[in-house]
Design a protein around this nucleic acid. Structure first.
Length: 120
RNA sequence: GGACUCCGUUAUAUGAUCGCGGUGCGCGAGAGCGCAAUGAGGAAAGUCCGAGCAUCACAGAGCAGGAUAGCUGAUAACGUCAGCCGAGGGCGACCUUAGGGCAAGUGCAACAGAAAAAAUACCGCAGCGAAAGCUGUAAGGGUGGAAUGGCGAGGUAAGAGCUCACCGGAGUGCGGGAGACCGCACUGCCGUGUAAACCCUAUCCGAUGCAACACCGAUUGGUGCGGAGAGCAACGCGUCUGCUCGGCGCGCUUCGUUGAAAGGUGGCUUGACCCUGCCGGCGACGGCAGGGCUAGAUAGAUGAUCAUACACGACAGAACUCGGCUUAUCGACGGAGUCCGAAU
RNA sequence: UGGGGCGUCGCCAAGCGGUAAGGCAGUGGACUCUGACUCCACCAUUCCGAGGGUUCAAAUCCUUCCGCCCCAA
C-alpha cells in the first residue's frame, strides 16, 4: 500500500474476502433501517469502503441501485469523517431489502446520524 | 360508429452542477492531472436449442446413448424461420397444430361388461320341442373412452356387406403437382385404441468450455505448508479471561518443501455487424453499391442533486461473441384487413 | 459461468399410467380417580409447486415457468 496522498481518490476499496470476514467478526456493528454498517479502525492511509448487496436485496437492478446509493452517500460524507478525526477506518455497508427504495439524501442522513458518532 | 384480426415502431425528454469506466489528445520522471467525444436491452433475463472460437481426443466402420419427425425451401447451423399440404377452430380477416410407422414384433387397456383383440353370446330375436333344452343369429338392449365401419333400401323364419346406393377406410390404375398431397375411375367388403408405452424406420450428433486457452515472469522474486531462531522494547492482530494486568502465538530472519496452482497481460470486441438505396424472390432470405464504428468492466463503470415539460415513466442491468426460442412488461404511435349496423 | 437434484397433509415421507401407503403431530372416543402408555375412529374437498399438452384416464409421460438445495471453480 503506497502512502502517497492523492486528491482525487479519497477512499479505497476493500477487495479481499479475508477483509470482509474480518470486519464481520471484529468490527463494530451499526444497524439502521437503510443498511447495516461494520466499522473498524485502521492504521493510516485512506478510509476503505466495502459494499455487500446480497441476493435478498432483489434482482440485479435493485442491487445496483443499492450499491450506487451507498457509494454516492459515502463519497459525500467521507470528507466529514476526515474532518472529525485523524484516524482512518474500514467500512463495510450491507444493503437491506428496503435500501433500493431510499433516496440518496436519506442514506446520507442515516450515515451522519448513526455512523458519525461512532468514529473517535 | 361498434366489435375484432394481423404486422411494425418506440420504451421519458432537455438543461445545469458534482461524480464513475475505458478510449483519444496534451502535460508530467512517475503516481497522476487537464480537455474532448463516448458508455446497457427489447428482452441485456431464463440457459431451452444451434453455431463461431479454444484445448484435448481421433485410420475407417459399427454398437450404445441422445435429439429430431408432413413437404419444399431459407441459413454457418438449428428443435428456428418462410411458403405450401393434411387435420382442427372461427360467419370472416385469420388462428392452432411433436403431423412417420400399432397391416414387423412385444406390452398395456383398471372398474364395468358375455366378450377388450383371441374368440365368443348376458338379456334378447327366430325355428324346432310338451318342457328341459337344441339350432341359427347379432337387429335391438345393457357395460364402457372404445364392441368387428356408418346410414337407408332390398332380403330373411329371425338376421347378417348376404346384395345394392351413398359416405368413410383399403388396394390398383390414370391424370395433376417440385413434393407433401389432390382429383377421377375400378376392385372389394375390410382386426379397436395407445408409439409425449417399449420399439421400428429415416436423418443428425467426439468431449469439454473464455473460470476455455495463450503468453509474461525463475532464487536479492513468489503461492501454500512445515521446521528452526530472534523479539515481545514499541505497534497491530489472534488466543487464554466477565474486565484489567500478564502469558503464549503471528508479523521479522533463516532452512526445507511446493513449482505457476498465485499475480499480471492477452483472449475482449470489425462482426455470418449496423444504416441507406437498388435488384432477384409470394416469402424466409440473397446479391450489388455507398456510408458508419456503436460498452468492454474485473469486488465489477451509467449515478446523485436541482429545474422544466407531459402520457407521470413498466419489465428490467452487458461479463467471450453471434442466430433463434421461451418468459416478464406501464403505455404510446403507425400500417394492412375482416364482420356487424347506419346513411348515400 | 457451467453442471446436477428436489417440490406429495402442519412435519418426515412411500407411490412413478387405473383415482394417494405409513409414521409423527392434531381432533373425538375407550381405558384410568387423573395424566402418560396402549387401543379404535377421523384427518389430501378430484389443488400431488404453477400453466399448457398427450391419453379413455396423469402425482406419474412431454413441455414452459416458479421456488429451494447441492457441486465445479
Amino acid at each position: 500500500m503506497t502512502a502517497v496522498p492523492d486528491q482525487r481518490k479519497r477512499y479505497a476499496v476493500i477487495k479481499s474476502n479475508r477483509d470482509f470476514t474480518y470486519l464481520f467478526k471484529k468490527g463494530e456493528c451499526v444497524v439502521c433501517g437503510g443498511f447495516v454498517c461494520y466499522i473498524k479502525p485502521r492504521r493510516a492511509g485512506k478510509n476503505r469502503l466495502g459494499i455487500v448487496t446480497g441476493k435478498k436485496v432483489g434482482n440485479a437492478v435493485k442491487r445496483n441501485r443499492a450499491r450506487r446509493i451507498i457509494r454516492e452517500a459515502f463519497r459525500l460524507i467521507d470528507p466529514v469523517f476526515k474532518e472529525k478525526t485523524n484516524r482512518r477506518f474500514d467500512f463495510v455497508f450491507v444493503a437491506r431489502a428496503k435500501t433500493p427504495t431510499f433516496k440518496m439524501q436519506q442514506i446520507y442522513n442515516l450515515m451522519s446520524r448513526n455512523v458519525l458518532p461512532k468514529l473517535q
